[in-house]
Design a protein around this nucleic acid. Structure first.
Lengths: 337, 337
DNA sequence: CTGAAAGCGCTAACAT
DNA sequence: ATGTTAGCGCTTTCAG
């Protein structure tokens, strides 16, 4: 049987509440005598191998210090930068003595008994929540922070400046003299608000320069085909993520198209990029870590004070210029395969 | 304020225990009257928006239905096949109404108040646990299952048949006529029992065939250098994981060495392999999903009955022969760069 | 400053 | 079959 405060109380010859206070460090140390007593109680607790019972505390305090990471689709959890976010979330939450629990929410209403029964104090999600879930969370006053999703007007969120990142990428390409600009999103990429934002940032920047944006949300074959057209092919390509860049670089290699001389490629997210690529990829980077830090901060403060207003944080992006982008070379275009 | 069984009891004009029983579906339906009453109680609960309080239940039942995934190193969590395992674990645990909580355990003793305070009913780990932690888990009788790690003689575990997988890979290569066989583990791979097992499986099989195994636990440059030596280079290479295969295939491309004609490459894990590689990689595959299923089953049964003996499950591997391996071509060897 | 006692909401043993 | 009651172990209020 585990040691309780009552066991300690008996051992120390005091009441359980004195033990509770002593252990919670409640004694400001006004009187020497009680300070000593508190100290000795702590000693005894230590000796007896006392561990506060988290379950009892949870019931008593009305909170678990546990936070849910809601997800409906496994893929989102550990894909791309998300796993960095998750790791950071855990670490960050730990600093404030909270934990992260993985909570898959399927349509079957399973989630009701999960999120609404006080098992967690709040939640986080990478994906828009189904209406029913969302409403219940609100009704039960369960704080919720969206991660990289801005589709909810009322929930707090931490999002990346996708628009700005794409915009900056285009400016980099145009400054290198590129006139035919494309953006590629692999068709396997699941719907996500960042796609639209990056696309808009891309297109707006391109148009602002008086150019015509080309956009692919397609298979690899399709874009590769376009990239092989001597006259119409883009010479500067912004990829939705570093996954696409990887594919493109690989494909171009096969077709003997030199990167960056014949095609400038820019990735997004700074993931695999630096690690295993030749040439080192120019990419739109952002600090995924920051997402976790902000999200944890927002959520914990909302748990602490449920009346806090919605808060929205935007993570800045930064273009990392490496070697996959270069000056446009007009004279080469005609001779390309 | 949330609705409790007392509120329902009052509303229904019965005692709280009747409510509790009605809601837990305890009524076998002996008498018609009570069955109806139970039904009406459920109705009322529904109408009042009752949600059982998980915290209260946890205290009362002496368990949280929460399970910890312990880790000391972030990298392990989401790397390679592990994230598949994690996802499967969550899903599997959910089937039995349990949750998975991510618990980073640093050296500072933080873990004590985490695992030993009854916040979780059991735990899982990809990595060997530090002695102190391990002992305390045992002392507090907290069930624990190791994932892909067999370094602990006493804890239950689910491991992959790494030895057999590597062994089979070698047989495949020798059956194709390869005589100079190598195995490559990237130096960045963190120490893990699977390295040794795969190495032993590899070496034993090679020696059994009367050949001399070559083993690299090195940087990419080092192995590539060896692979470029015309006379001594391996013609068949087993990689520790698909990550290494990716690197090798890429490098060989650069040096104009054709795969599989001039070098047969076998990966391990079946991860990226099929997805984004040319040629499709021959690889030692195993069902990562199974790891989660077994682990969840073992853990839950040990939580249910703490006196259950240690259980060890081994996940079978299967060699997926694709296009990165081919017959050894002796005549080509001398002419290779 | 300390102790007694009332919750927290549910489960389960016990009595009816 | 139903109601009563005693925990579960901690926090917190209220007397003293």
């Amino acid at each position: 049987m585990a040691v309780t405060i009552y066991d300690i109380a008996e051992q120390a010859g005091v009441s359980s509440s004195t033990v509770a206070r002593a252990l919670s460090g409640d004694y400001k140390g006004q009187r020497k005598k009680s300070r000593e007593r508190a100290h000795s109680i702590q000693q005894i607790a230590q000796e007896m191998g006392y561990r506060p019972n988290a379950r009892a505390r949870a019931l008593s305090e009305g909170r678990t210090r546990d936070v849910a990471l809601l997800y409906t689709d496994d893929a989102w959890l550990f894909e791309g930068v998300n796993n960095q976010v998750v790791q950071c979330l855990v670490t960050e939450l730990r600093k404030y003595d909270h934990f992260l629990t993985l909570v898959p929410i399927d349509e079957e209403g399973d989630w009701e008994d999960i999120v609404l029964n006080g098992r967690v104090d709040g939640c986080l999600s990478f994906q828009p929540l189904a209406g029913a879930i969302r409403n219940e969370l609100q009704r039960f006053n369960v704080p919720c922070v969206m991660l990289g999703d801005d589709s909810d007007e009322e929930l707090s969120q931490v999002v990346v400046d996708d628009f700005g990142g794409a915009y900056a990428a285009v400016l980099h390409l145009t400054s290198l003299g590129h006139k035919r600009l494309g953006m590629f999103v692999h068709k396997s990429v699941k719907p996500h608000c960042s796609i639209g934002h990056r696309q808009r940032g891309f297109e707006e920047a391109v148009r602002q320069k008086g150019l015509v944006p080309q956009f692919w949300h397609s298979s690899e074959e399709e874009i590769v085909d376009a990239l092989l057209q001597p006259l119409s092919r883009p010479t500067g390509l912004l990829c939705y993520s570093d996954l696409e860049s990887t594919l493109i670089v690989h494909s171009m290699w096969k077709y003997g198209i030199n990167i960056p001389n014949e095609l400038s490629v820019i990735g997004f997210n700074d993931l695999f990029s630096t690690k295993h690529m030749t040439p080192p990829l120019t990419t739109v980077a952002f600090d995924a870590h920051q997402i976790g830090v902000f999200a944890a901060d927002i959520l914990l403060s909302q748990i602490h004070n449920r009346d806090l207003p919605r808060r929205s944080e935007i993570i800045k992006t930064k273009l990392l210029v490496r070697s996959s982008t270069a000056m446009a070379r007009a004279w080469k275009l005609a001779t390309t395969v």
